[in-house]
Design a binder for these strands. Structure first.
Lengths: 348, 348
DNA sequence: GTGAAAGCGCTAACAG
DNA sequence: CTGTTAGCGCTTTCAC
């Protein structure tokens, strides 16, 4: 294994000079720099991570904690994870993957051992077990999701309330007066993740404002569940002409069922989905949708912890409250259109 | 920060004793052990990861390298990643998440810096860029997937050839004589990932053996693409009564299209899918399927690197070739049945 | 069964 | 602009 000392000897300089060439923490004459860089290349030197962490008490590692449950929409989580890893590399950091498996203890372990300099928590719940530990850890942390009490924490999330309002605005703008929400699975509401409720709040608020009637039904992702939910919706509100779908796995079954029932999209019924753009484009009818900005959430979370660690150029700010709600963007595709003139029972 | 030295003082022993209590590498009288453990708990001591890595030249970290492309089926990748992380913890290791972003260089960086003790590569291609570096790294590594030349490497994968044979056997057993394969996207074949070809090989072999006719068509996941593929299949082979689907994202559109065309599953046409069990159970018609054993692949990969690192109880064996193909399991659900008596054109 | 002490490879004062 | 040096906290001989 090539060490810094060997590089120093090879380049005819002292160890500290090599170290400073690497870190850029003091000015080096371009002559020495060249020779050192040359030696580094020739010897194939890589600084030892452990030694560096020990001496500098910074590991250059960010811990990313995934939720225990897997009922979250997986592609979004994956996209966040990849964005976190990519952005972290841009800041000379690596990412340690923690699953919820170990529970809140993982926070203590990773922080206590100095394994990670900072952490990012995904799928944060309103009352999250991990938050007390995160607060007392006194390490930069960023949450993806919005807890009930974000005091002293950094959080990024999609502005779900605005998302809800946007969906209603779009449908109302097309003359829909009676809409239904195909919501998340009941378990999601019970777990109090917050985002589902916030979406509903936004939907209800804007509906009230615009005089639109709303019916909300939670819905699992299975075909049967969607069938049942749809049946109950049309049973209770036969005049429904607009649907907002928040459960991504319900989308395909939903479209399939509507087609089977002879309800044309968007002629008879308009559908707005809250889902990744990639999904919205692949369905049988391209979906008007509000995207979940997974990449941006991951990127911002990393930038937040870097800033809070004092590595962003600005001074450190661990402990400051910082809530960032990303504005929703609605993309109009083929699944929404004007409300049918007479919103009566099934056509034909 | 609590250090080992402080624990030692608190317990009235020497630093090395504390270290040995922690590692179990020498026998400690139960008296001292108790006192040390007590002190550790009281002081909330966590060994410093950097110091430990430096002194022992083992980081207790496994690098997991994900593919750059995102056209792999995401839920499977995620499941593998979670299984890797979970199993790693059972072996006192953490997982570092690397994306393909950096390319093969990432291997060099992580290994050179001693950041990771071992690595696991996902989505390995037949001629994978990373393999030369992995070979010269002389660190334990495990591949998920099977390269053209596995010499000196450890690999786990589903036995896709056997999977193909199994699908054909099942359909042939139900009297199907004319089957079609809805394959992966053309890009997957072009990239030479191997698994798609191996599945086909198995399908063709068993078909030849059993006198079944096979038509293969690559297929993207989009609705249009599936529609086109299906049209071409039934155009060319109207008598097709069995379908093997390998592209998971094609499944929902496929079922939806068959229904629209008035082809009942399984009465008119049988469908076997190669996909996670969870997907197979959620579709409108529960799918007879061969599962991708994602969890087991992740788990085995970790166990392989642990063994090769000499941490599995047995002696180390880096450099030994070790190819492990997991046997496929076919689960019969509702999407397959006897071939219709007269396999003619569309019913009705 | 336990201690003492020599590093592991790097960083960051301190000294010029 | 560069060199010297004292640790960082732990593991692991060696010694008893």
């Amino acid at each position: 294994m090539v060490t810094l000392a060997e590089v120093a000897r090879h380049a005819g300089v002292s160890a500290s000079t090599v170290s400073y060439v690497l870190s850029g923490k003091r000015t080096i004459s371009s002559g020495t720099r060249q020779r050192v860089e040359q030696s580094i290349r020739e010897l194939g030197y890589h600084p030892n991570a452990g030694a560096r962490a020990l001496a500098s008490s910074r590991s250059n590692i960010i811990a990313l904690m995934m939720p225990l449950r897997t009922d979250m929409y997986v592609p979004v989580m994956m996209e966040i994870a990849v964005a976190v890893a990519t952005t972290a590399r841009e800041h000379q950091h690596d990412v340690l993957l923690l699953t919820g498996q170990e529970g809140p203890e993982a926070v203590r372990r990773v922080v206590g051992s100095g394994l990670a300099d900072a952490m990012i928590l995904m799928d944060v719940e309103l009352e999250d077990d991990r938050l007390p530990l995160v607060r007392e850890a006194r390490r930069p942390a960023a949450l993806i999701g919005l807890p009930a009490d974000p005091r002293g924490l950094a959080c990024v999330d999609l502005d779900f309330a605005a998302t809800g309002r946007l969906c209603v605005e779009h449908l109302a703008g097309h003359g829909h007066r009676d809409i239904a929400v195909v919501g998340e699975a009941p378990a999601v509401y019970e777990r109090h993740t917050g985002f589902a409720e916030r979406t509903l709040d936004g939907i209800r608020e804007k509906s009230a404002e615009l005089g639109v009637r709303v019916l909300h039904r939670p819905c699992e992702g299975s075909y049967e569940s969607v069938a049942g939910t749809l049946a109950r919706i049309f049973d209770e509100r036969p005049g429904t002409t607009g649907l907002v779908v928040q459960n991504e796995s319900a989308i395909e079954p939903l479209l399939s069922l509507l087609r089977q029932q002879g309800r044309a999209v968007p002629e008879d019924i308009s559908v707005v989905a809250i889902c990744p753009d990639q999904v919205a484009g692949q369905t049988s009818v391209a979906l008007t949708s509000v995207a979940i900005p997974a990449q941006e959430m991951g990127r911002r979370a990393v930038e937040m912890v870097m800033t809070r660690a004092g590595l962003g150029g600005a001074p450190a700010m661990t402990g400051t409250e910082q809530v960032e709600l990303l504005p929703p963007r609605l993309t109009v595709r083929a699944s929404t259109g004007p409300a049918p003139a007479a919103a009566g029972p099934l056509p034909g």
